[in-house]
């Protein structure tokens, strides 16, 4: 058995890196984040899907209802609803990326670097937000083209509030990706997205639904995304109930995600 000290290789011949370990940690996270966003935003097929879908549905509805006397107001509220729908799809589809990385085993390769699981999840969430922004913006641009006129501050506030409100949905996408088999996860994501959009009143206003369904709708995060997103347009009391509902979902989903993460490490393909 050799008792030689480690020869001047590996760590020894590596020049000392500047910066404290925590600074290096942050730099690593930012690096992974930047690269992930670049890769995601270069995926034209994916971007096209999350942008074209809600925008075309929006234009379709506006053409149908837009001719009425309150046309401009309807167009504005529908814009927020469809923006929420587009954001919902983008947020949840971020789960499809983690799912594909898991099923292929790429996730395991990432676990062989200095990247920590927390950094991985953080980066995935921020990447998802990065895709949410163009999805909502596309519907807003379509709205502007259809004659919706708002103050710059109102546009910005509505976008920012919706991005924030969609955070639980990003986590929902991650949770589905973590807990379901790859083949199932795509179907579950699509089903959950449609259910949340319909029951949350993103396609037809909740007020037109039976009382029982309204009660269900008010417990869903999707409903509050559009409510919070339209608050800058309507004014009045800020929907704090919605914030409470969203925080509740976020906490529950984050807990499920933490459990699913360990599950994912254990079951990811060899």
């Amino acid at each position: 058995m050799t008792t030689l000290a480690h020869p001047p290789s590996a760590t020894d011949r590596t020049p000392a890196r500047p910066g404290s370990p925590s600074i290096r940690q942050e730099r690593r996270l930012l690096h992974y984040l930047g690269q992930s966003i670049t890769i995601q935003l270069r995926d034209w097929a994916f971007l096209g899907f999350v942008i074209v879908m809600p925008t075309s549905v929006y234009l379709f509805f506006v053409t149908i209802y837009g001719g009425q006397s309150s046309g401009q107001e309807v167009a504005a509220f529908m814009m927020v609803m469809m923006g929420a729908y587009g954001g919902l799809g983008a947020a949840m589809n971020a789960g499809s990326q983690i799912q594909s990385e898991r099923s292929s085993g790429w996730f395991r390769q990432l676990m062989l670097t200095s990247l920590t699981p927390t950094q991985f999840v953080l980066a995935k969430i921020v990447t998802a937000v990065a895709v949410v922004v163009p999805a909502i913006s596309a519907v807003f641009i379509a709205g502007a083209a259809c004659g919706v006129r708002l103050d710059a501050g109102v546009w910005a506030a509505s976008l920012a509030l919706m991005v924030g409100a969609l955070l639980p949905m990003v986590v929902l996408g991650l949770v589905i990706g973590l807990w379901f088999k790859p083949q199932t996860a795509t179907a579950v994501t699509t089903f959950a997205m449609l259910a949340l959009a319909m029951l949350g009143g993103l396609w037809f206003p909740l007020d037109l639904m039976p009382a029982a369904m309204q009660t269900i709708g008010r417990l869903l995060p999707s409903y509050w995304v559009s409510q919070i997103g339209s608050w800058p347009l309507t004014g009045g009391a800020f929907p704090w109930t919605g914030v409470a509902v969203l925080v509740g979902w976020l906490v529950a989903l984050a807990a499920l995600g933490a459990l699913g993460y360990g599950h994912s490490v254990r079951t990811s393909r060899r």
Partner: peptide
């Protein structure tokens, strides 16, 4: 530690 996994996946 560095490792080469059996059938290790590459980012697609």
């Amino acid at each position: 530690v560095g490792a080469m996994l059996q059938n290790g996946a590459l980012l697609w």
